[in-house]
Nucleic acid binder design. Structure first.
Lengths: 191, 191
DNA sequence: ACCCCATCTTTACACCGTCAAGACCGACGG
DNA sequence: CCGTCGGTCTTGACGGTGTAAAGATGGGGT
C-alpha cells in the first residue's frame, strides 16, 4: 500500500509533503512556510497534511528533524576530516557556520524553540542532540589534553565554544557577518 | 493638535501603538504579534495603524528600533560599572545575555534580518549599531593593551567575542542553555 | 465478494494583512 | 462667525492562512 506513487491515495504523501516543505524552506523563512502552499506543491488538497502531521507545527517539526539530521551529518564529516585536535575544532566550527550560511532557514528551523522545546525534545531528535553534544565534548576534551590541561574546565569551555560557534553561525545566517570573517575569529579563539 | 489624549483623534496614536506592540512583544514572539491585536489593545480600529506605519513591517521595525535602544542602554550601563578591562568585557557579555534572557522576543526582533537588513539599516538604527560596535571594539582594545598585546588581532578578536556572546545569548534566549552556564563560559574565554 | 477504514476532498469558520471608500473633527482663511 | 480643507480614524471588502467537521474514494483483510 505504501509503494506505488500513482493512484488516488498517492502512496507516499508523507514523504512528498516533507520534500515539498523542505524545498519551500530553502526559499523562505520557516514563518512563511505555509501548510497550504506545501500541499499545493505536493498536488493535494490543503487539508491533506492534517492526517499525517497533526498541524502546521507537526510538519515544521518533522522538517526540522530532517534538517537536524543533515546538520549532524555535516558535523560528523567535518570532525572526521581532521586529526589534529585544534584543526578538528576549527573544522567543526566551520561546518557549523557553513550550514547556517548555506541553509539559513533550515538552521533557524533547527534551533526554533517553539517547534522543538530544548526541555523534553521530541524522541526523534533527542539522540541527534545527544550525539552532537557528545561530539563537541570529545573534540574539546581532545584539545584540552593536547595542550596538557586537565578536564576541569571541560564543561565551561564546551559551552563557550558552542556559544561562539553558534553566535558566529547565527550572525552569518542573518547576514550580520561576512563568511570570510569567521575563520580568523575561530583561529583567534583556539590560539 | 498633538497634545491632548482625549478626543476622537486620540492625540498620540503612534506612541500608543508602539507601547501596545511592545507590551505584546513581551508575551509573544515577533511572528505572532499581529497588527490587529495591537490595534485592539490600543482601542482603535484594525486599519488605524496603517496611517502611522506603512504596514506590519513598519510597526515591527519601529518597535525593534526602540528595543535596540533599550539594548544599547544596557550595554553602556554595563560597561560603565566596571573599570578593569577583563571585568568590563565580562560585564558587557553578561548584559548582552541578560537582555536575551529577560526579553527573548525583543532580542529576536532586534536581530531579525528581514525587518532591519544589516546592509543599509534604517537611518534610525544605524547610529545605534555603530555605537554598539564602537563600544565593543573599545573594550576589546583595552583588554588587548592590558595584556600587553598589540592591536593586530583586534578585528578577529572582536568578532570572535561578539560571536561568543551573541551565541550564548541566543542559546539562553531559546532556552537551550541555562543562564548560570554563561558566566563560567565567559570567564573561561577571557582567561 | 464484501465491507471496513485509512486516506483524501470539500466545505466552513475565524483570523490575518492590506486596500479603498467614507465619516469625523480640528484648523485655517474669509 | 462660518465654511471648507485635510489629516485621522472607521467601515467594509478581498484574498490568504490554519484548523475542524463532514463527505467521498478505493485498497486490503475476512
Amino acid at each position: 500500500m505504501s509503494r506505488s506513487s500513482t493512484g488516488y491515495h498517492h502512496g507516499d504523501l508523507r514523504r512528498a509533503l516533507l520534500e515539498a516543505g523542505a524545498a519551500l524552506l530553502e526559499e523562505q523563512a520557516p514563518a512563511r512556510v505555509s501548510l497550504r502552499e506545501v500541499a499545493r506543491r505536493a498536488g493535494v488538497s490543503h487539508a491533506a497534511p492534517y492526517h499525517h502531521f497533526g498541524d502546521r507545527g507537526g510538519l515544521l517539526k518533522a522538517i526540522g528533524d530532517a534538517c537536524m539530521g543533515d546538520f549532524l551529518a555535516r558535523q560528523e564529516d567535518a570532525a572526521a576530516t581532521q586529526s589534529d585536535p585544534a584543526d578538528r575544532i576549527v573544522a567543526l566550527g566551520e561546518a557549523y557556520v557553513s550550514f547556517a550560511a548555506e541553509r539559513p532557514h533550515a538552521f533557524a528551523l533547527v534551533f526554533d524553540p517553539e517547534l522543538c522545546p530544548p526541555q523534553d525534545p521530541s524522541p526523534e531528535r533527542a539522540p541527534l542532540i545527544a550525539r552532537n553534544e557528545e561530539l563537541l565534548a570529545e573534540c574539546v576534551a581532545a584539545w584540552l589534553t593536547a595542550r596538557g590541561r586537565g578536564p576541569e574546565d571541560l564543561e565551561a569551555l564546551s559551552t563557550a565554544f558552542w556559544g561562539a560557534v553558534h553566535g558566529l553561525a547565527a550572525l552569518v545566517g542573518e547576514g550580520q557577518l561576512g563568511r570570510e570573517q569567521v575563520a580568523p575569529a575561530l583561529r583567534a579563539l583556539v590560539r
